[in-house]
Amino acid sequence: MAVRGIRGAITVTVNEEAAILEATEKLIRAMVEVNGVDPEDIASVMITVTHDLDAAFPARGARALPGFELVPLMCSNEIPVPGSLEKCIRVMMLVNTEKSSREIRHVFLEGASVLRPDLNSQVK
């Protein structure tokens, strides 16, 4: 078994609590589903937001998912690089898995699909 990183990102259209929480839940649910992850196998989840998202801690959206009550979650701000994608939530999920790096499916939704088209699993 190895620890593997699963990347994901999603954008929201407004800086509102409900939008941030719903988007985070949608993204993490998709990451878990396409990779067949059991929350018991998640070592930790790091969530970053761009500077224009401060209406809620996105970890609250993840915490609403079944089995995430004890998963270690941490929120942080993304580096504010000029011209970078706005209103974006990024996730790095570390999981214990038998899968190889090539078998991991990364998930980029909504406007974040432009970030890594080479890695995007095309989850809708």
Rank of each mutant, 00 (worst) to 15 (best):
N77P: 14
V37C: 14
I79S: 04
V49M: 06
V14K: 14
A18Y: 05
R4D: 08
V123R: 04
V91S: 00
L70F: 13
I104M: 07
I47R: 04
R60N: 10
L115Q: 02
K99A: 06
G36V: 00
R90T: 10
L73V: 02
R29V: 03
A112C: 02
R90P: 04
R105E: 08
E98A: 11
R29A: 13
V12P: 08
I10K: 04
S84Q: 12
C88S: 06
E110G: 07
S113E: 11
D118A: 10
V14G: 10
R29P: 01
S100W: 04
G5T: 10
S101T: 12
V107L: 00
I42G: 04
G111Q: 08
M93L: 12
T11Y: 03
S44M: 14
F68Y: 13
I47E: 00
G36T: 07
V34Y: 11
Q122K: 15
V114R: 10
F57T: 03
A56S: 05
C88P: 04
L119I: 09
S100P: 03
H106G: 09
I89A: 00
D54P: 15
I20D: 07
E98T: 15
R105L: 02
V45E: 01
D118T: 12
V71W: 00
N15L: 14
S44I: 02
T97K: 13
A9V: 12
P58Y: 15
D52N: 10
F68Q: 14
V114M: 04
H51P: 08
V37F: 02
E110T: 07
C88H: 11
V107C: 01
A112G: 00
S121T: 14
L53H: 07
E33Y: 06
S84D: 14
S84L: 07
N77D: 15
G111V: 13
I42V: 10
L85F: 04
S101F: 13
L94I: 03
M93I: 03
I28P: 06
N120Q: 11
M93E: 00
V71L: 08
D38K: 12
A64F: 02
L21K: 03
E17V: 15
A23L: 07
E86Q: 14
V95I: 13
E86N: 06
I104W: 03
R90W: 03
